[in-house]
Design a protein around this nucleic acid. Sequence first.
DNA 1: GGTATTAAGTCAGAGACTCTGACTAATGTC
DNA 2: GACATTAGTCAGAGTCTCTGACTTAATACC
Lengths: 145, 145
Amino acid sequence: MPDGELNTGLLLYIPYRWLENRVFQALAEAGFDDITTAQMKIMQRIGPDGTRLTELAEQAQVTKQTAGFLVDQLEKAGWVERVPDPTDRRARLVHIAPRGLEAIPVATAAVKAAEAEWEAHLGTRRMAQLRRLLAELREITDPYA
Amino acid sequence: MPDGELNTGLLLYIPYRWLENRVFQALAEAGFDDITTAQMKIMQRIGPDGTRLTELAEQAQVTKQTAGFLVDQLEKAGWVERVPDPTDRRARLVHIAPRGLEAIPVATAAVKAAEAEWEAHLGTRRMAQLRRLLAELREITDPYA
DNA sequence: GGTATTAAGTCAGAGACTCTGACTAATGTC
DNA sequence: GACATTAGTCAGAGTCTCTGACTTAATACC
């Protein structure tokens, strides 16, 4: 699978991976050095009022068992906590714990900084255009849009 | 890390992942059902004249050991073969083997079909624009550009 | 030429991620 | 109340990835 002209998949992946590296590095520098990318993919999808394991699994595109494993790790490390779902006694809601709340601004700042670099390179107008195009692509590629 | 407005990272990742799924599915349907995504990330980076393990490792952003492990798997399954590098007796070049060559058109067709769907959704002009913007982003995010 | 450093790759071991299959308990349907 | 569905867990196996130590070949420098 040689390239010729790089396919759009790789063109999407390269900046994605770069951004992920940046966030990871920023977290590590701030002392949050015990989180993994797989765990981050779960964290990212926890809503403000908590989210069920099954829903996290679907959105992260992994099995319930995998999501359960990752939430176990996140819980042990103090990033999240599980609380009973008042509306369904089978279910529990995964919430972001205090330690997780501390990490959010660090991650957010890293993303913002990276996006600012991109905007400086592309120009404000074209960066907005890029986001708009990607948002449109999401309409046909994200089952949870 | 709840969303608000989805960060650009996730906006890049969603279509990337969707495309990867498509290719994977197309390969499986064509009978190439014994390749993994990690192996594909290596395959994708093999040049027409073969590529060294170290270079594959760097570009795929994994250690030499990991790349070696993946190439072992790919070799066992007949996707690639290793041949001595005539210019350096320490090195070997990873080449795509006959079976790998058969899979390429299947993967390529899946990518093309997916890109066509995107183009139908965005319009020709805007799809080209998207690719142009991503290519520009690559300039500052791909150390191997 | 000869020694030191660097580069390509392997071996060994451990930890992290992910899956399939089988299961329990609570909920929903008729 | 019986039956199917949904949320989640337990157990086991395979895959991916890393760190550290090593071998062999090439390169740098004197």
